[in-house]
């Protein structure tokens, strides 16, 4: 299949060289959605590529140690749960579902609270997209747990 060490050493070296930069750029995109292009969807895509590129280029023993197979479904679930919790927490403070401004923490204004809520939501979306994409890739490559 498509995973495993690439037969060309050039591609192996460049793949190993680029994937941490892609990971870094994905984190930047996820966290920087307030000020520039990006957000959870694109950032999650970058994170997924940072996990898929080693699987395509590096030896399997190494690539699946970096991002294990069970990581994909786990991260999808964690991201989804983060999003849902972020929606449920304001309801304990008497607000509506996903109304981050209703959360009252001393010293933080409502607008700042919404800013932070957006950040948490973006992280949740990013993790969910990352998990989903890695899971689909692993399943297509016939690598899965169970």
């Amino acid at each position: 299949m498509m995973t495993g060490a690439y037969p060309s050493v050039v591609v192996r070296v460049v793949g190993a060289l680029l994937s941490p930069f892609i990971l870094l750029f994905g984190l930047y995109i996820v966290a920087h959605g307030h000020y520039g292009p990006g957000g959870g969807f694109a950032g999650g895509g970058f994170l997924a590529v940072a996990a898929i590129l080693p699987r395509v280029t590096l030896p399997e023993s190494l690539a699946y140690k970096l991002v294990p197979v069970h990581f994909g479904p786990l991260m999808g679930g964690v991201g989804m749960l983060l999003f849902l919790l972020c929606g449920l927490v304001p309801m304990f403070f008497g607000g509506m579902f996903l109304d981050y401004g209703a959360v009252e923490i001393a010293g933080i204004a409502a607008s700042r609270m919404r800013y932070l809520g957006i950040l948490v939501v973006e992280i949740g979306v990013g993790l969910a997209v990352f998990g989903a994409m890695v899971t689909i890739f692993d399943v297509l490559m016939d690598r899965s747990e169970t």
Partner: peptide, 17 residues
């Protein structure tokens, strides 16, 4: 920058095929 980083993946996968 994002595109320059990501466009690397598809030719690698095609070559892999």
């Amino acid at each position: 920058l994002g595109y320059a980083l990501l466009a690397f993946l598809l030719p690698i996968a095609l070559g892999r095929y």
